[in-house]
Structures are given as structure tokens and as C-alpha cells.
Computed example of a mutant assay.
Amino acid sequence: MTEVSPRPLPEGMERPGVARGLLTLVSHRYLLTLLVRKELRVRYQASVLGLAWSYVKPGAQFAVFFFVMGQFLQLSRSIPPYAIFLFSGIVVVNLFSEILGNATRSVVGNAPLVRKIFLPRQLFPLSTVLVALVHFLPQLVILVIGALVSGWRPDPAALGAALLGAVLVIVFALALGLLFGAVNVAFRDTENTVDLILMVAVWFSPVLYNIGLVRDHFGADSWLTRLYEANPLTIAVELFHRAFWYPAAEPGVRDGALIDHVMWRGVIALVVCMGLLWVGDRVFTRLSRNFAQEL
């Protein structure tokens, strides 16, 4: 039998059920808004505190790390003001962790929708970015207030570093979330792998300690140090340090060697992560054709 090719569609119409990339989601803003509302409503259903958990969780995390690392291990003496240094890193890692963790589970978690109707599958991981931003903004407000109390005064370089760091971590987390989210449909072990990554993320980026300790231990020119500094999450954390901690820190505790180049490192890392996002989008789009059957 000869294969019958599909008839061309009239102008202005497109064939339904065809997987497309992230760029096409602009025309599905209403669906994206509905998914974000659903995620927030389900997450805080029957919750007493509701969105207040956006303050409670990072606050408890900060308190534990501050007293263990800052007081018991005396890091607050070598990295003043340690509270700003610590919290500026925590908000970055929390944003990364929430996007990556939820994006990995987004397709499986919306299995009934995937099986019943067709809609762009990228809407699910993309909605996790917007939900994460809803939780990120209250933490950012607390960070800004704390930095102002510590003597921080905003300047163009600081604001640019904060914006670049936020965009970098969003693009990096979404790129990985698309990859892991697509693979997780067929191999559920992916969720456990991502959980392991998120568990060590706070320790393998300069959130609790100054990056100078890594350079002193392995050597400034060591390949391990270069690999550590090339981590986009490390660069994003250092960008937030440049934005909020660096202006208030004492000159003797600033890591000037990295701070001087952190903006350039951020731009380069963002370009690389944009390429990774393109790869993740292509892989997700290709594998999404079988999501309904796999689920």
C-alpha cells in the first residue's frame, strides 16, 4: 500500500496534536496561567499558612545554617556580614531546587491531563518556573531589607548582577528540568537522581563558605577549582554575592579575583545555558510524542 500524505491545511490553521518548542508557548499564555493557579491551589489546599511557607521554609533553613556554620564553626567571623552572605546564596539555591525538582515531576504529576487532551507539554515544566518565582520574590524582599539594614546601597552594577544571576539560574534549572522531566516519564529513577543532585547542590556551591576556601585547598589553577567555578549555579550564587554582600563586606574578606570577573563569567555561563536550554527543548519535544502512551 502506498502511504497517503496528509492534505495541506488552509492558511492560518495548524495541525492539532503536533509537539512544538518553547517559543510557541507565547500563544498559550491563558493555559499557562491556569496551570500556575492550579499548582498553587493544590499545593496550599487545606494549608493554614498558605504562601507564608515561602517565608517559613527559607527562614528555618537560614537559622540552621547560620547557627551551625556561622556560630559553631565561626564562619561569621571570617565572612562578615555572614547573614547576608548566607541568605543571598540560599535564595539562589532554593530557586534552582524548586524549578528543577518540580519540572522533573511536572509531566508525571499531570498524567491525567497528558492522557486525556493535547496541549503543549512544555507548559508543565514552564509553569513550575512561574510558581517558583512566586516563592522567590518574598525571599528576595527579605534579602533586600536585610542588606539595606547592613548598609547596602543599590548601584547599577549590583542590580545588574542580581538580574543576571536570577536569569542564569532560571535558564539553567529549566534546561535541566526539561531534560530530566522528559526522561522521567520512561524512567522514574530520574526523580531520585535529581533529589541527590539537589541534596548536594548547597554544598557544591559557595553558599555556606567563601569560594576562596576551594581555591586555597585545591589550588587556584587546579582543574577541580576551574570545574567548580564553571558551575552555573556557583556563578549565580557569586553574582548574588556581588549584588548584595560585596558592597557591605569588609575589603579584607572579599574574594576580588572572582568578583572582578563574575559578570563576564555570568554572561558566558548564560550563553552556554541558553544552548543547553535549546538542547533540552529539542529532547523534550521529541520524547513528548510518546508521553501519553508511556503514562
Rank of each mutant, 00 (worst) to 15 (best):
V202T: 09
V202F: 04
V202L: 07
V202I: 13
W203T: 11
W203P: 04
W203R: 05
W203N: 07
W203D: 06
W203I: 15
F204R: 10
F204Y: 10
S205G: 08
S205N: 06
S205T: 15
S205W: 06
S205C: 15
S205E: 10
S205H: 02
P206G: 05
V207D: 02
V207R: 02
V207N: 02
V207F: 08
V207Y: 01
L208F: 08
L208A: 06
L208N: 02
L208K: 04
Y209K: 14
Y209W: 08
Y209G: 15
Y209Q: 05
N210S: 14
N210A: 13
N210H: 00
N210G: 13
N210E: 10
N210C: 02
I211H: 05
I211K: 05
I211C: 05
I211P: 07
I211G: 14
I211V: 07
G212S: 01
G212F: 03
G212E: 15
G212M: 02
L213D: 02
L213R: 03
L213T: 01
V214L: 12
V214N: 07
V214K: 14
V214H: 00
V214D: 00
V214S: 10
V214Y: 01
R215G: 06
R215E: 11
D216W: 10
D216R: 15
H217V: 07
H217M: 11
H217T: 14
H217F: 13
F218V: 02
F218Y: 14
F218L: 11
F218S: 01
G219A: 12
G219L: 08
G219H: 10
G219E: 11
G219C: 10
G219M: 12
A220H: 11
A220T: 06
D221V: 01
D221M: 04
D221R: 03
D221C: 01
D221Y: 07
S222Q: 06
S222K: 05
W223T: 11
W223I: 11
W223V: 06
W223H: 12
L224S: 04
L224K: 05
T225L: 00
T225C: 03
T225E: 14
T225H: 08
R226L: 15
L227G: 14
L227V: 07
L227K: 03
L227H: 04
L227M: 14
Y228T: 00
Y228F: 13
E229D: 11
E229T: 08
E229A: 12
E229H: 08
A230C: 10
A230H: 10
A230D: 15
A230V: 09
N231D: 13
N231H: 00
N231L: 03
P232H: 00
P232F: 03
P232Q: 04
P232D: 00
P232W: 00
L233K: 01
L233H: 12
L233F: 02
T234G: 09
T234K: 03
T234L: 02
T234I: 04
T234C: 06
I235V: 12
I235F: 02
I235R: 00
A236V: 13
